[in-house]
Design a protein around this nucleic acid. Structure first.
Lengths: 350, 350
DNA sequence: TTGATTTATTGGAACGTTCCATTTATTAGG
DNA sequence: CCTAATAAATGGAACGTTCCAATAAATCAA
């Protein structure tokens, strides 16, 4: 049916007996063309097997409708959820976002960003890779491409950010642990080159101080932000003279790792050691024991980020308000039954 | 430093005091230009804050170096792993693949495919959405864009496919179950609109027949291919007068669901009911109990698919050999100890 | 020196669109 | 029936690159 070489609007024009300009107008759904002409053209488009050349169009139009999502770890279901949330809103806006993975590698991120720019993206939603240098987004800024950060932020940057309320989430979780009677706590996983880490750790510390846990009873053990990291953290904490009895983990993956390590030692998560996660990924609910975690409404944040992006593009600005999403603690089984009575120090009113 | 409006090769040319053609040559790393000229040009490129316009280039060059990966469910960690495998090889080839998610929705897939074509992709690696119509890839074929299917295939299609050996995997798993002494088996999850389903189910049936399980003792219960589906399958199987004692699940997600449902009933997966999964996702190892599963070397298949794609593009063909990847059963804890002695029918030599 | 050869550089046309300024066809007003 | 206004369709230039053919500069053989 269709000719071998790829068809252009000129082929369509010839087929339909109109000019290329008319075809272009039809393609853009302009109301200027007579309906009958439009159907004639549309038929020709079908007949010649035409495929629109967005590259050529962008050459003239200055701005594309391609939006990129740059994600630091596709393997982490958390980020997949975030991506899904974004896609929901882009889909209803009729645009197809392209996802690119940086695998937590700043060099790869550089390549990805470069490629996306060359492609002429209209905007970028980015969860920056760990160790991203401050200058990594300078080119984007210079080019005036709207960028929003999701979930992670860079130390000094004027780029708008969509994150959960990390500080409050960590505070809530820590308070829960203390409320359960724990007096020697740990913060597992993450590393100080991540701004999120400081936010979550800040909440942890504030809760400890406010609720009467001495600084020396609030351990901090850095580690990878995955299962392996969680296992390692638990092991080092147990090597201590006075191991903690509960841990707030940087994220759910770390928490899963910690629980795994507990099992390996013959200890039961929940009963023998309390674990709280962060992010509340779908698996948290299904794990055994089900993981208590700070729910951040991941998909919702994704949607929010997408909306902000759309608005930025529309109003051709590169600035927007930050958005700090509400969080809440979902209590499940990984912190065990209430031990307050057992562990409470003797004396003390109420 | 850089000018406000976006710079073109003409700006670079002016800055460096050469012609646009020279700049173009430098950009392409041609050996024709004098080294000193090249450095001069490269400096100018830096100075004016130039970003290459791939769209304009493609207009002239006919073929881009953009490769798309169309994935049916990003949320499934299995597909994320597949994507990671592909990326590994694309990265070393210096190209950045764009991932698009169809969320198992043929309509969305249509949009995604269209968008990718308009972008002028050089090739596509696709895991088609369930319910994809046979004609969905006709346009791609007409346009001569190389496509390879990964993990899933379409009933009638000349497009090359990279899949694991589903039949053999299912056979192995079923034989394992039978070897453990189980005599009443079930196949959980999946639905008959998926070619993979028939392949896996075929292996299940062949093992049953070969190893002496009567057809009425080989139940087949269709269902969603996620946790929820697994739970549902288990429930319906237990509603039967004679429930099975073991199940081969369509994939690991279904297996996790089945184990969850068992726990809800107060039964211990492994000891009270044997479960085997398929795909061997990373979580399988870490689950409690650890899931016995058919390992398909997901990332490896992804790499393979990427290699095939690269070769197709290079040799500008749209055809390639199918590739059926080797599988092996990873035995863990979800099938319990050997019950052969307990369940073996009396008599029978050796 | 001169012409032939090689090495570097360059101008122009082309790629497939969009959009503006025009032209042509249609309708309305008097 | 003519003019003015409106509606519909069109040609041309421009977008930023590549690539070919052509030129200019440098080197060589004689």
């Amino acid at each position: 049916m269709a000719s071998r070489a790829k068809a252009t609007i000129f082929d369509i024009a010839r087929e339909a007996g109109v000019s290329k300009s008319t075809v272009s107008l039809v393609l853009q759904g302009s109301g200027l063309i007579r309906p009958e002409t439009a159907v004639k053209v549309r038929k020709a488009i079908e007949d010649v097997g035409y495929v629109y050349n967005r590259g050529a169009a962008n050459l003239r139009k200055a701005h594309s409708n391609v939006i990129g999502m740059v994600i630091n770890d596709l393997t982490n279901p958390f980020f997949a959820e975030l991506a899904v949330g974004m896609e929901r809103v882009f889909q209803s806006a009729g645009i197809v976002p392209f996802i690119a993975n940086t695998a937590e590698n700043p060099v790869r991120q550089e390549e990805v960003l470069k490629s996306l720019m060359e492609q002429g993206v209209a905007g970028l939603i980015v969860s920056p890779a760990r160790g991203t240098t401050p200058g990594a987004f300078r080119r984007l800024e210079l080019a005036g491409v709207p960028v929003v950060f999701a979930m992670r932020r860079l130390p000094e940057s004027r780029i708008p950010v969509i994150t959960p309320d990390n500080h409050r989430g960590a505070y809530l979780a820590t308070a829960h642990l203390i409320g359960k009677g724990h007096r020697r706590l740990a913060f597992f996983g993450g590393s100080s080159d991540l701004v999120v880490y400081h936010e979550r750790l800040g909440g942890f510390h504030e809760a400890c101080e406010t609720l009467g846990i001495a600084a020396r009873d609030a351990l901090v053990i850095e580690g990878e932000t995955n299962r392996k990291g969680g296992m390692a953290c638990l092991e080092t904490s147990f090597a201590l003279a006075e191991p903690p009895t509960a841990a707030l983990c940087f994220n759910d993956a770390v928490a899963f790792g910690a629980m795994l390590a507990l099992r390996k030692r013959g200890l039961e998560p929940g009963a023998d050691f309390a674990v709280v996660g962060f992010d509340d990924v779908v698996e948290a609910e299904h794990y055994v024991p089900a993981l208590t975690s700070v729910a951040v409404n991941t998909a919702g944040l994704g949607e929010r980020a997408a909306h902000v992006m759309l608005k930025m593009i529309q109003s051709r600005t590169t600035r927007a308000e930050d958005h700090i999403g509400a969080v809440n603690l979902v209590v499940r089984e990984s912190c065990g039954p209430d031990r307050r009575t057992r562990n409470r120090p003797a004396g003390g009113a109420v």
